[in-house]
Nucleic acid binder design. Structure first.
Ligand SMILES: [Mn+2]
Ligand SMILES: [Mn+2]
Ligand SMILES: [Zn+2]
Ligand SMILES: [Zn+2]
Lengths: 133, 133
DNA sequence: TAATTATTTGCAACACCGTTGCATTAATTA
DNA sequence: TAATTAATGCAACGGTGTTGCAAATAATTA
């Protein structure tokens, strides 16, 4: 398993390792409130700064859904500083509430004459694998 | 032009009419800060409550983009209490910053075996008509 | 390894966001 | 027009996220 902090040229502090471990542990996106619960004790200012630098460096990405607190998930593809590349969708289960990044084989393209399309982000709600079984 | 407030069974107060007129005036989505600027004077608590009830009743819908303050736009299709039906995408122009609801002819469907898909929301960034011309 | 330098952390303080209880005022209904 | 129902404005509060600065820690260099 690669060392994300070193890769992204970030100092390896105990706190950053701990926060990174939490994101790695989950297979889905989590809000800050979960991170906070999983940390034994923490300084909220440092946590905000940590999240910010993780997003900036392309370690995690933010998922904004209407009426939801922001969720964050480890970047799966090769994200870089400032540019996050998503070839996956963001799925919110209406039953269990889980928000996750789901890879799909045919990522759709859309036709928008006169516009120039840069990035496409897709958010889907419904029933996840588990809850649909 | 239909009376949205009456249609949605909301009391027609001067303030609600004024806020609704602002949303109607714009052809794109706007954040609360714009609404506030356009109102001569207002009470921010009442504004929050107005926005909330407009969203609940399906008069406007919220557009959440990562790193942006929430934007709101008049519902174009037949949205109802609790369920917003979007057959359009949300486009953010990287040049002028405008966020708008854009209708497309072929709204994509995606294949997600084992999942049950309810709603699909698509957010696109790039250059808008104007800025791409 | 020890000393130096660069970076991160924690504290204090603050501004902004959004909500709630409650009394007052306005809109709807009869 | 009177009675009823709903919206508004005030006060007060908790949550969110940021900044300046000093102390602590990590990385770098000698
Ligand atoms: Mn994702
Ligand atoms: Mn829209
Ligand atoms: Zn589920
Ligand atoms: Zn533009």
């Amino acid at each position: 398993m690669r060392n994300l902090l070193k890769d992204k040229k970030l100092s390896e502090t105990p706190f950053r390792k701990e926060v990174l471990a939490i994101f790695t542990k989950y297979n889905n996106a989590i809000p800050l409130s979960i991170v906070e619960k999983d940390l034994k004790e923490y300084n909220r200012i440092t946590l905000y700064r940590t999240i910010k630098v993780f997003v900036e460096k392309g370690i995690i990405h933010e998922i904004s859904l209407s009426g939801e607190e922001s969720n964050y998930a480890i970047c799966q593809e090769e994200c870089d500083i400032g540019s996050h590349q998503h070839q996956h969708i963001h799925f919110k289960c209406n039953m269990c509430g889980t928000i996750s990044c789901v890879k799909i084989n045919k990522f759709p393209t859309i036709q928008l004459p006169e516009y120039k399309i840069d990035q496409l982000e897709i958010q889907v709600t419904g029933l996840c694998k588990k809850c649909n079984a």
